[in-house]
Design a protein around this nucleic acid. Structure first.
Lengths: 155, 155
DNA sequence: TTCACTGCAAACCTTTTGCAATTCT
DNA sequence: AGAATTGCAAAAGGTTTGCAGTGAA
C-alpha cells in the first residue's frame, strides 16, 4: 500500500505537474500530520525543521493539491488535510468534488475521513420534501476520537 | 406569526441587549434577504439605502446575533443568514449550537433551513464504525432550488 | 533550453482592538 | 446618570498579484 506522499507525487506526475522541493516538503508534512493545518502552521513546522519555504508558495501548493483532489479543506476551520479515501464513481475528478464526510476531534484536532452509508437516503428525502435538486454536500461531525475517549477514562 | 425582525428584537430585549438603530438596520436587512450576506455586502446594501453604518459595527452586530442564535453562518462561504427554525431540545442555547442543515442554491444563492430526519441514524452508525463520540455536526447541501429548476425549464 | 515554479515585495481584503463620543434604558 | 453600543483610526491577520530569477524535465 503506497504512502500518501507516494500517491500524491504519482498523481502530480501524471497530471504533468513538476515535482519540486517545496511541493515535496508540503506533501510530506501533510502525510505525517494527523490534524489539518493552515498555511502559517505549515510554514512554522517547516521552518523549525530548517526547511525554508515562502508562505506564498505554500498557498500555491495548497491550491495545486486541491485542484488534484489530494487534500480536504475543513470548512469549519479553513484548514487543510490529506485526502486518503479513494473517490467513488460519484465523486470523480470531473465533478470536481470529494464527498466530504469528516469526523473532527475537538480535543486533539485529529480528523478522520469516512464514508457515510445512508446519506443517499437522506438526500432523497430532502429532495422530496424541499423540491431542491441536490448536487453535492459537505458534512462535518464534531466530537471526541477514540484515543481521546480512552485517555479521558484513565484520568 | 411574528416576522423575523419582531422575533429577533424580542430575543435581544429578553437577553438585555439594547435595541439600537444599527441593530435594527442589520436585522431588517437579514429578515428581507433570501440569501446569506457577508459584512461588506450588508454595508453596501445599507449604504445604498442611505442607512449609514460602520463596518466594525456590522461585525459586532453579527457577533451579537450569533451569540443569540439568531443567525446561521454558512461554512462554505462564511456568510450569514437569518435563522428561522425553532430550536429542538437537542439544540438549546446552552449547547451553543444550532443543528445546521442547509440547502444552498448554487444558481440564486438562496438558502433553506431544514430538519434532516435520519441524521440521528447516520450518526449512530458513524459512532459504531469509528469509535468517535459525536457531539454536533454541520451539514450543507448544494444544488438548485425549486424556483431555479422551474426557471430553467421555461427556457 | 524551455517553461513551470519559487521567492520576494507589495498590494489588497478581512477582521480585530482601543478609545472617545453617542445613545439606549 | 450609568452602562452599553457605536464610529473612527489604526493595527493585525490572511490572501493574492506581479515579476524577476531558479530549477525540473
Amino acid at each position: 500500500m503506497p504512502t500518501y506522499k507516494q500517491k500524491a507525487l504519482e498523481v502530480l506526475k501524471n497530471h504533468k505537474f513538476r515535482i519540486t522541493k517545496p511541493r515535496e516538503m508540503v506533501i510530506e508534512l501533510l502525510g505525517k500530520s494527523k490534524e489539518p493545518l493552515n498555511p502559517y502552521e505549515m510554514k512554522d513546522i517547516l521552518d523549525r525543521k530548517h526547511n525554508k519555504i515562502d508562505i506564498v508558495s505554500i498557498y500555491r501548493i495548497i491550491k495545486c493539491l486541491e485542484d488534484n483532489n489530494l487534500v480536504h479543506r475543513v470548512l469549519s476551520t479553513n484548514k487543510v488535510a490529506k485526502c486518503q479515501i479513494e473517490h467513488e464513481d460519484k465523486c470523480t475528478k470531473e465533478s470536481n468534488h470529494h464527498c466530504h464526510h469528516l469526523l473532527i476531534c475537538e480535543k486533539c484536532s485529529s480528523i478522520e475521513e469516512v464514508h457515510c452509508a445512508g446519506v443517499d437516503l437522506i438526500i432523497k428525502k430532502l429532495e422530496k420534501d424541499s423540491n431542491f435538486k441536490i448536487k453535492r454536500h459537505d458534512l462535518e461531525f464534531y466530537g471526541f476520537c477514540s484515543n481521546c475517549i480512552k485517555a479521558k477514562k484513565k484520568n
